[in-house]
Design a protein around this nucleic acid. Structure first.
Ligand SMILES: NC(=O)c1ccc[n+]([C@@H]2O[C@H](COP(=O)([O-])OP(=O)(O)OC[C@H]3O[C@@H](n4cnc5c(N)ncnc54)[C@H](O)[C@@H]3O)[C@@H](O)[C@H]2O)c1
Ligand SMILES: NC(=O)c1ccc[n+]([C@@H]2O[C@H](COP(=O)([O-])OP(=O)(O)OC[C@H]3O[C@@H](n4cnc5c(N)ncnc54)[C@H](O)[C@@H]3O)[C@@H](O)[C@H]2O)c1
Lengths: 206, 206
DNA sequence: GCAATTTCGTGATAATTTGCACAACACTTC
DNA sequence: GAAGTGTTGTGCAAATTATCACGAAATTGC
């Protein structure tokens, strides 16, 4: 599913479609329409149709979309019809919560390595993984071929960790530290920062 | 600083500006330019100037922006030149990590109540807060006047919790559960979902 | 089997968002 | 105090994004 020229803003909506469709699937709904999906997500039916039409013709006039089929197609498009191994750096409070989180498995992701620099944490078990020494990260990650990383270290260490992840061959980073990461072209970063989301809302509060 | 008709997309960038400026402030930088700020964040200088000009004239030609002044202005615009009390619902793994997280305090937020429905957790201390019984949530939150809530319960409970928060007078919800919440007009929701961010990146991976 | 209904995919159109480029101003240097 | 440099704020143009609306296809009801 090679991307010719799909706008980023379209791609950014697809995971939301997939998530909603997977819920429908679990609820036993076999068929849906752009209208129904749009109502659930809160966007217009036309936008959903146009977004999907960028990738193919997935629906049937008069009938709508097969939920199963559309889930399958979206998984292919998003490259999650496989499992991506993930390396997690930072085994503190947040790192523990994420490592124990069972929600990744069904959606194409699996945390397979955890690193920390604190000797007190190295060797500790989290679930069925053992916290490893951050000093060995670059070598181990490079050898493993892992392409996706998560950063849950304090802000002042995050850029250095990102640099190492890049050195280790990581191409996508989910960053939980409240700081802007600078990475080479071709490396993708997404930033999860609750404060930014909260401030987006307080703007609208009296 | 209630402006007329600022596009949502502009508002959504302001917290990022504020965050970056606060870092500059901590680093002792007194003055900056739209160019410098843009380089750090990864957007164009013109966009930053245009965004800020929606709210006033904060810069000086030839000199740039005073970091302190701009931080102060952005805090006013975003309504975080005060502290917002927050109620957290769900004292599980993630709830614990968030409740223990020290990062909110400096940015206009403070978790002041935690609720859970699990009798084993009610009464437990997290930091200096005590987990309270979710059955009493509506009354206690309403009485407190809190306007901002966070949901860290399992997906299947999230909508019910959201409904209760709305009933309790909450106007802004930060939702960590991987499900789409339906709320009345006027209530703001932001969704934090790591899987969505990961999938946005794997699209671009080979 | 045919009319009515549903819903898709999409070209055309409208709206929004971004980028450009420059006058205006402020500071620096000599 | 004049020339030179830097940087803002903004009108306008360009690019991007969303919406509209309709033909075509599929289904339903009678
Ligand atoms: N806890 C939360 O709910 C939460 C929420 C949002 C954001 N964050 C952010 O996530 C990050 C972690 O938060 P936390 O509460 O888990 O902090 P924490 O202090 O509990 O954990 C940080 C961990 O990172 C490790 N570390 C530090 N430098 C390292 C390095 N160079 N290499 C490897 N490991 C290193 C530390 O040893 C520690 O175990 C912070 O940046 C925080 O701002 C946390
Ligand atoms: N842990 C993570 O890293 C992580 C990451 C992303 C998203 N999430 C999401 O966050 C949510 C919580 O994850 P977790 O790992 O902390 O789960 P968890 O099971 O550890 O915690 C959930 C808590 O919610 C409580 N709860 C359930 N129903 C409730 C109700 N009606 N009212 C009040 N409390 C109720 C439970 O008693 C439990 O303590 C889930 O929706 C999960 O998908 C978690």
């Amino acid at each position: 599913m090679i991307a010719k020229d799909i706008p980023d803003i379209v791609v950014s909506r697809l995971p939301r479609y997939l998530q909603t469709l997977e819920h429908m699937q679990k609820d036993g709904i076999r068929t849906t329409s752009s209208q129904e999906l749009g109502d659930l997500i809160g966007i217009s039916a036309a936008q959903i149709r146009k977004d999907l039409s960028q990738f193919g013709e997935f629906g049937k006039q008069g009938k709508g979309y097969s939920v199963d089929f559309l889930v399958d197609q979206l998984r292919q498009i998003l490259n999650v019809n496989r499992s991506w191994d993930i390396v997690l750096v930072g085994a503190g409070n947040l790192g523990h919560a994420i490592a124990n989180y069972q929600g990744f498995g069904n959606h194409g992701f699996s945390i397979v390595m955890i690193f920390d620099s604190d000797p007190a944490l190295i060797g500790q078990k989290i679930g069925n993984l053992t916290v490893q020494d951050a000093a060995q990260m670059v070598d181990l990650v490079r050898a493993s071929g892992i392409k996706v990383g998560m950063i849950t270290v304090p802000a002042q260490a995050a850029q250095a960790v990102a640099d190492e992840l890049v050195k280790a061959g990581i191409q996508a980073i989910l960053n939980y530290a409240p700081i802007n990461l600078t990475v080479p072209e071709g490396v993708h970063v997404q930033h999860v920062d609750p404060i930014i989301y909260l401030q987006r809302m307080t703007y609208y509060l009296a």
